[in-house]
Design a protein around this nucleic acid. Structure first.
Length: 275
DNA sequence: ATACTCCCCTGAGAGC
DNA sequence: TGCTCTCAGGGGAGTA
């Protein structure tokens, strides 16, 4: 389940291999992966597009193609592999880009949850998904007063609000738990009842957790691995996520697992106070 | 406007 | 062994 650190790791690997190359054509084997424009337009527009750069915005991988952006969201299990036209297509390879030199970039996604968007740079800023993404965690505009403006309208649990990509973008289920643990805030607290100190801690520890995870190359958990060198080690530094029944590293209390907004949520009931 | 529910999709793991 | 059931979850759509 790639979040910002994993997406950045994948994007960096792709960049090293693909900048300066060209998409010759593309084959789509599962139409729902392409969310914009139509599949036919997507196939037509991608032809002979040179890859200038590869970056990220939120959890999206951004292929900079001169006049267009190709955006890819890996969702739960999306991965890229390099193959050649001689390799038979595997069961879960749904999109195959033909590059030069007979090489192919294949998008593999067991759950078929991933999404791709091909959009001109001109219309991109006012179009989904760019138009609905909040601040990156490193943005200097991410301040207590910025969060306050959003949080004051939110009675939802802070865990759910951390996953709202229109406020801070890039946080997913694993890092949300870790951020709240370090902030000593219960995942169940309503966002509009947080103190200024709570909001400042969220910003501080969001940056701390995500930067540490990036340094570790991301988190490798459950099915999420990638042939393209994403074998992150941050799972070794997780304090609460996935630790149900284990002692809290801080106080020794049993880590609990609950559901918050339909998401599995791990926390220490002693360190992370409800008020 | 916010918040809630359902849905997408498949494989892993539990229970029998 | 092999079957059926439940769960995992980011985010979009539809509805209250």
């Amino acid at each position: 389940m790639p979040e910002k650190p994993e997406v950045m790791t994948v994007a960096r690997k792709l960049k090293n291999h693909l900048v300066g190359r060209e998409f010759k054509s593309v084959e789509i084997f599962h139409d729902n992966i392409v969310s914009y424009p139509t599949v036919e337009e997507f196939k037509e527009k991608i032809k002979n597009k040179k890859i200038i750069d590869i970056t990220t915005r939120g959890k999206w991988i951004v292929f900079d193609l001169e006049n267009d952006y190709l955006l890819v969201h890996l969702r739960m299990e999306g991965k890229f592999f390099y193959r050649t036209s001689k390799d038979i297509r595997e069961k879960h390879e749904h999109v195959i880009f033909t590059l030069d030199h007979g090489e192919e970039l294949r998008y593999h996604d067991v759950r078929k949850f991933g999404k791709m968007v091909l959009i001109s740079k001109k219309e991109a800023p006012d179009h989904k998904p760019f138009s609905e993404l909040g601040l990156e965690f490193w943005d200097s505009e991410l301040t207590d007063s910025y969060l306050k403006e959003y949080y004051k309208k939110k009675s939802l649990p802070i865990k759910s609000v951390l996953l709202d990509q229109s406020i801070i973008t890039g946080i997913g289920n694993i890092y949300a738990d870790e951020i709240l643990y370090r902030s000593h805030i219960s995942p169940l607290r309503s966002a509009n009842r947080l103190t200024k100190k709570n909001r400042s801690d969220i910003i501080l520890y969001t940056r701390e957790v995500l930067n540490e995870a990036i340094d570790a190359g991301g988190t490798t958990i459950r099915s999420y691995t990638s042939e393209e060198g994403v074998h992150g080690l941050f799972q070794q530094q997780l304090k609460v996520h996935g630790k149900k029944g284990e002692p809290c590293p801080n106080c020794g209390a049993n880590i609990l697992k609950i559901q918050v907004g339909g998401r599995g949520t791990y926390y220490c009931p002693k360190c992370q106070k409800t008020k």
